[in-house]
Write a protein that binds this DNA or RNA. Structure first.
Lengths: 166, 166
DNA sequence: GTCCATGCAAACCTTTTGCACTATA
DNA sequence: TATAGTGCAAAAGGTTTGCATGGAC
């Protein structure tokens, strides 16, 4: 049953992708896509499930995972992994479709930044290694401004001088 | 029972780290550390377990995980995640303790490279975001030289033009 | 009407934990 | 001898899969 839902341009793009592949455009797929497209940050599957529940959409976790897989394949959504033990998803239709991440080791905040230095890196590996870059991932872990201003100091764990072998 | 095992300088470093923390230096810890230190690539827990079995060391998986945790904390070993669904471990006592990774989407080969452009990136985020970098991670996914020379072409999946919304 | 998606629960896989026993220092 | 580690098996947590039912086209 095709209802008159609010189909945003982004969801329409996803619909086009599905149709190109001969796959059905279902309510559930549009609902999951809409949650991701209307979210601004990096959403976990749990968060997406919660948002769907708030919207009174009852969609199984398996369907959410299967739809996210399609969204990632369509390249409309990027899969992220900040080492939390689960993945996060972020749509790529923002002002800055290509960006990297700063991750605070103290509070977990994720900040986005752009780095055109990386184009130089990619050109170098193309020339020096004959490697054709397709996609990349740069994450810098450290202490964010707010935590630093709050006086947090990151403890230095580990050996002070790992090179000394005596 | 303290046997006369072949204790390399690297294992001695790990022993020092443990002693500094008042923790016992056990056979199992030395055995796991030795496998990691004598391995050149990026080892998974399964591979470490297999190597230990070949050496006739019977060590439980839990102990391997617990020892790897100590090795990572000591900063003698780096934890890697190439999106395979499990982690890999690499010792940091090579010629190039700091390096990034090129990962072939076709054959899975991992090549290491160095990028001093990243120091500039880190300085920039320090100035522009007040963020103090501690560690970083750069992975470039693409097609390696061998696969390209073998004629492999990466299929372009997804929408051709994700920006067009009509 | 055909084909595929959905939902539920079970399965899967890596990693973590509880607990009785053993080794280190 | 006190303290901490080990091994086993069970648990945990995220993700995937099998299968009967229901929806898209």
């Amino acid at each position: 049953m095709q209802t008159d839902r609010d189909v945003t341009p982004y969801i329409r793009l996803f619909g086009r992708y599905l149709r190109d592949l001969g796959l059905p455009v279902t309510q559930q797929r549009e609902a999951v896509a809409d949650v991701v497209f209307t979210s601004e940050g990096h959403r976990s599957v749990d968060e997406i499930e919660g948002e769907l529940r708030e919207r009174d959409e009852r969609i199984g976790k398996a369907t959410i995972y299967r739809t996210l897989d399609l969204l990632v394949r369509s390249r409309l959504v990027a899969e992220r992994d900040f080492g939390e033990g689960f993945k996060r998803y972020e749509h790529r239709l923002s002002d800055h479709p290509v960006h990297e991440h700063l991750i605070c080791l103290e509070c977990g905040k994720v900040t986005e930044f752009e780095s055109n230095e990386l184009y130089r890196v990619e050109n170098r590996v193309r020339q020096e290694h004959g490697f054709q870059p397709v996609r990349r991932r740069l994450e810098i872990y450290g202490l964010c401004k707010e935590c630093h201003d709050a006086g947090v100091e990151l403890p230095i764990e580990g050996l002070m001088c790992p090179i000394e072998t005596v």
